[in-house]
């Protein structure tokens, strides 16, 4: 049986036994290589489920849809390891009760899809642990390496050019599972900290604010990257912040549902190299 068939059967079982009220998975998208989220409430709907190497979007953000979990019933969800990590962060930040979530875990590497064992977030902790251990020392991304090699002026010019395309559509925010605030800071207009027009200053403000709000929280799922209609390599900014946070505080986002947010926690042995 293919992985797709196995998981289809599991989804059906979960629904028919009443263990979950809904399974969030993938179905065919607008083009053959695209998948879109599929919200399955009956075993029959599970037939349209697709699970293959094109299923790369992180679905965890759908779990915090207003009211979805307030009836305390369980929901099943297809998640890659990055999705499990963001699930852990959402739980750590009190956005959901992780006991309500049944994980259907899988992974995609080099266009190969593999099944992952376990169904609770904590069943994947060893896997996430090993992900932390195997974070590459070098960026591993040719563009990021190029950016790292630039001096401050060149780097600023690079991002200025990239951000100049930003149209402030906030698709990155909508796609990100971590952007769950009911009112985003950019929507505040008393005072209006972030300029709403798509000019250099406002574009920088927005993207830098987002980078800080995601430092120590981004799991690098790439939802923002893929959502961006003007192809700004947003993931690189967050990858850089994640790298800094790991180096300075040994913090790898989404290790567990009890992990403290790195920017809000203070430990006596925190490095103080940044205090002048």
């Amino acid at each position: 049986m293919t992985i797709q068939e196995t998981y289809k059967t599991r989804a059906k079982e979960l629904l028919s036994s009443g263990r979950v009220k809904m399974v969030v998975g993938y179905k065919a998208g607008s083009t053959p290589d695209r998948r879109r989220p599929h919200f399955i409430r009956t075993p029959e709907e599970a037939d349209r489920l697709i699970l293959d190497s094109a299923c790369i979007a992180n679905l965890s953000g759908y779990l915090i849809t207003e009211g979805l979990l307030s009836d305390e019933k369980s929901v099943g969800i297809f998640l890659k390891p990055d999705g499990v990590r963001s699930l852990n962060i959402l739980a750590a930040e009190s956005q959901l009760n992780i006991e309500q979530i049944v994980v259907l875990g899988f992974d995609v590497n080099n266009n190969e899809i593999t099944a992952l064992k376990g169904e609770k977030a904590e069943d994947f902790s060893t896997l996430i642990e090993s992900l932390k251990e195997h974070v590459p020392q070098t960026p591993g991304n040719p563009l990021l390496e190029r950016i790292e090699a630039m001096n401050a002026k060149e780097r600023f010019a690079f991002w200025e050019a990239e951000f100049s395309r930003c149209i402030k559509c906030y698709a990155c925010r909508q796609a990100c599972p971590m952007c769950y605030c009911r009112r985003c800071i950019v929507d505040c207009n008393q005072p209006q900290w972030v300029n709403t027009s798509s000019h250099t200053l406002g574009n920088f403000e927005w993207n830098i604010v987002r980078a800080f709000h995601l430092s120590g929280r981004c799991v690098g799922c790439g939802n923002c990257d893929r959502a961006c209609p003007v192809n700004i390599p947003l993931r690189l900014i967050n990858a850089k912040m994640a790298h800094e946070v790991l180096g300075a505080f040994d913090h790898f986002a989404g290790m567990s549902q009890t992990q403290e947010p790195v920017l809000a926690s203070f430990k006596k042995d925190d490095s103080e190299t940044f205090i002048l």
Partner: peptide, 14 residues
């Protein structure tokens, strides 16, 4: 009305 209830402030408060 706008608080997202992430409790970061609870931890951050010295």
């Amino acid at each position: 009305s706008t608080c997202a209830g992430c409790w970061g402030c609870v931890l951050a408060c010295p």
